[in-house]
Computed example of a mutant assay.
Amino acid sequence: MDLVVHSASLPHTDPEASLAFYRDALGFEVRSDEGDAGGRWITLGPAGGTGTSLVLEPAGARPGLTTAERRTIAEMMAKGTYAAITLATADLDALHRRLRDAGAELAWGPTDQPSGVRDCAYRDPAGNLVRITQA
């Protein structure tokens, strides 16, 4: 059976701020932008790519969540402990400069980790951790 990762989801709290981060600062292309006053689902991915997509979905929009669960998600997002994604680039320092110049919130790095990985991390506008490693 051939199986690939089609998409991964991260919550957002402000679709325009998320677009400024993922599209404008990271350089992802918008593959779809759907929704209404009830929320927007934005699908993005690396420019020119046809592989895995990132779906930004309204925080707490999943069916079946209780009010208490939505409150916990909001609290965790505010602390930056709810969701994360790891990206890879051939030129970590150049991407770090681009994100820094765009005003993105740096969490750490660039750092040479004891494991041999060189990485940095930023928080997106919703508080999600976006770790970026040197490919």
Rank of each mutant, 00 (worst) to 15 (best):
A135T: 12
P63G: 15
H6V: 08
G51A: 11
G60W: 08
P58G: 03
D112V: 10
Y82E: 12
V5S: 13
A17W: 00
D93I: 04
D2F: 11
T89C: 14
H6R: 11
Y82K: 05
P114A: 02
W41F: 05
V5L: 09
G103M: 04
V5A: 08
G116P: 00
V55N: 12
M76L: 15
M76D: 12
V5M: 07
W108T: 15
R100V: 14
L129C: 11
A68F: 05
D36E: 03
N128R: 01
P58M: 02
V117S: 04
A135C: 15
R31I: 05
R100M: 14
V30N: 01
T89E: 11
T50A: 15
T67H: 14
G51I: 10
A102P: 08
D33Y: 08
L106Q: 13
P46A: 15
P46W: 14
A83G: 08
L92W: 07
Y122H: 04
G116M: 07
G35S: 05
D24C: 02
T67W: 13
E57R: 13
R71V: 07
P110L: 05
T81E: 09
T72I: 10
M1W: 02
Q134L: 11
A20I: 00
A102D: 07
F28Q: 00
D14T: 00
T89W: 06
D36T: 02
N128P: 03
A121V: 03
Y22E: 06
A107L: 13
S53V: 14
A8Y: 04
D14I: 02
T86M: 12
Y22F: 10
R71G: 10
D112R: 11
W41R: 05
C120M: 10
K79P: 12
L3D: 02
L54P: 00
S115Q: 12
G27T: 06
Y122E: 04
V4Y: 12
D119M: 09
A37I: 04
R31P: 01
G60P: 10
L44N: 01
G109W: 06
Y82P: 09
A20W: 02
